[in-house]
């Protein structure tokens, strides 16, 4: 096993890939067009997926004060470039955009795995899920395509030499795993605090490299046929605080949940 990844001058040179998806802002009102088959992007503010911001923040912490690099990658058409520039402003070293609409998890994972194969990253960070499709598919798919280990929901990540220690989320607790380079982890709440770009970051982001690559061909295995929205709940039934106990009866006899 290699110990520390250092260059000739003894500096650590970790090479990290961070996957970022471009998603509607969390407070956006959602609507659909073309017979409810497509998301209506008109007037919608897009952001870096919140979990990917966490992944990016952790990656930047890990290379701080070293000669390591953080490359961000997005699979998306040209409309995602402001989101990618924001990641560069936050501190990423450089960026790759795979020029294609992200059809589904398999499509995205295949694109990212193809780039990762070419470029030899020490490890790959993604978010635990993107808040649009909520698929949580991409990180484990990339890992399977590359034949490397992964943790889909990682709450904590530390590195020693070329091994990571990760807290994996499990029902009612956590599992602490040790995982050698290269691997994929899906960042979750708690791994790091998202970073806000400063003025210098914003200025330098304009000149940082953003390479556009063409997509590789992927079979179409699935397709979103339509969307619908939840039925609004009926009017709330208010119970007077003086008779709070009445609620328990209603939960039993009317809602039948206890």
């Amino acid at each position: 096993m290699r110990t520390l990844k250092k260059n000739k001058r003894g500096k650590i040179t970790m090479k990290i890939l961070v996957c970022i998806s471009h998603v509607p802002d969390t407070t956006t009102k959602i609507s659909f067009i073309e017979n409810n088959s497509k998301f209506n992007a008109a007037g919608v503010q897009f952001i870096i997926n919140p979990y990917d911001e966490i992944a990016l923040a952790r990656a930047l912490e890990l290379i701080e004060g070293t000669e390591g690099t953080v490359t961000v990658i997005n699979v998306g058409d040209i409309s995602t470039e402001p989101t990618i520039r924001k990641a560069l402003a936050i501190g990423a070293t450089d960026a790759i955009r795979v020029n294609a609409a992200p059809r589904d998890g398999y499509f995205v994972a295949t694109q990212i795995a193809a780039i990762a194969k070419e470029m030899n990253f020490d490890f790959i960070l993604a978010g635990r899920e993107s808040i649009d499709y909520n698929g949580g598919q991409v990180p484990a798919m990339i890992a399977e395509l590359l034949g490397i280990p992964s943790v889909s929901i990682a709450k904590k990540l530390t590195i020693e030499g070329t091994t990571a220690t990760i807290d994996r989320e499990i029902e009612g607790g956590k599992e602490i795993v040790s995982i050698p380079f290269p691997f994929v982890a899906g960042a979750s709440e708690g791994m790091a605090e998202p970073k806000i770009p400063n003025m210098r970051g914003i200025m330098s982001a304009r000149t940082k490299p953003l390479v556009v690559k063409e997509a590789v061909a992927v079979d179409l295995l699935q397709e979103i046929k339509s969307y619908d929205t939840p039925k609004p709940r009926g009017q709330v039934k208010l119970i007077s605080p003086d008779n709070a106990g009445e609620l328990i009866e209603l939960l039993h006899s009317e809602a039948k949940v206890i």
Binding site: P24, T26, I30, F32, F39, I131, D132, Y133, N134, D219, L220, L221, Q222, E223, I224, K225, S226, Y227, D228, T229, P230
Partner: peptide
């Protein structure tokens, strides 16, 4: 889909 704001109907073709 969209964090509880919608449902997606996905056709699995394979």
């Amino acid at each position: 889909a969209y964090s509880g704001k919608a449902f997606a109907h996905i056709e699995l073709k394979s």
